[in-house]
Amino acid sequence: SPQTLYTYPENFRAFKVLVAAQYSGAKVTTDPAFVFGDTNKTPAFLNKFPLGKVPAFESSDGRCIFESNAICWAVANDELRGASPMDQAQVVAWMSFADNEILPASCTWVFPCMGIMSFNKGNTERAKEDVRKALQCLNTHLLTRTFLVGERITLADVSVCCTLLHLYQYVLDAGFRKPFQNANRWFTTMINQPQVKAVIGDLKMCDKMAQFDP
Amino acid sequence: SPQTLYTYPENFRAFKVLVAAQYSGAKVTTDPAFVFGDTNKTPAFLNKFPLGKVPAFESSDGRCIFESNAICWAVANDELRGASPMDQAQVVAWMSFADNEILPASCTWVFPCMGIMSFNKGNTERAKEDVRKALQCLNTHLLTRTFLVGERITLADVSVCCTLLHLYQYVLDAGFRKPFQNANRWFTTMINQPQVKAVIGDLKMCDKMAQFDP
């Protein structure tokens, strides 16, 4: 029976959920009638999801889940969530890493290039530093590993990969990403997975670092 | 066998872990030799925890876990993590809610009053609004519930409660918290739990909203 994901198109947070569902086989459909900025402000929606944020998820038995990492957890399977509590803890660690160490820096650096917000040189330089640190941490961890937790793909890989999409797509040119070969190799493996391609399509790593265009 | 938590004293993120351990019975000791700003910059520490951040955790079998929510997951038990994948998803949702909806606003509002960072009037007003929204969401959810997920305390309650500590301690005076009686009731239940008291001691809700003192 259908499970519904409320989101707007090209939402990298929703990509995490849709990729997880590709691996687990969970039936998740996005509601074509959903209009971001309208539907999520209606009393019916707010009654289910008081914060009015997306992605938002309604399970087949009517349970409403907010926060993208939680929705991933709900549509995943045991393999994706981690085989043991300790593996699950590592999965939670990398999901938090994506939200705490990658996302703020990624948005600070990329959003001005997308025309979404104004550019601030100091913030952007700091964001580049933080992206380097996060990639360095990933790169070290992936020196001896194919995937982030255990031997198979988990929500850790799905979450970190989807949170890196904007960076690899818009600003991580060959020069910037050169020191992080293990991370690049892992990211390339991820975006070439059929289950990932089915959701995000063909992702091309950027050749030229996008700049803010005043 | 001992499991070690590296942190500085009075770290609310570490409180989450220590409270979870109180409930699960996990043996977790904080390393008395740890000096924040020194130990976490040594090569030995960075080799285990490349980001150099705390809290950081080393399990009895030598597994190193970073990010506080992940450490909570590792020291918890099945009851705290959630009985089913769907309950676990709800637990992950509230842990994310604490990090995404409460923490930014709490730091922005309270840290200037604690002398941790400079005051900005606009940011503080926005933070107050965000705190109201988060408390409203909690209050609605707790109208018909004793705890956040299921019938017993889980990591959802532990995480949200510890992330609210600064707010209830410094700025949520009787006037501000008046509209959120269900949330106040739940918070009072939580801080009076022996397992919570054992970690945070006696917490007194603030009488007078702390102000930034230039």
Binding site: P9, F36, G37, K53, P104 | F36, G37, F111, M117
Partner: peptide
């Protein structure tokens, strides 16, 4: 997509707050 992304709540100041918190507790 850009329009919707503009509504995302991102903690852009997180690095500022993290730095301040770290310095405060290092000095403590």
């Amino acid at each position: 997509m850009a329009l919707e992304l503009a509504h995302e709540t991102i903690w852009f100041d997180k690095w500022r707050v993290d730095d301040a918190e770290r310095q405060f507790y290092e000095n403590k």
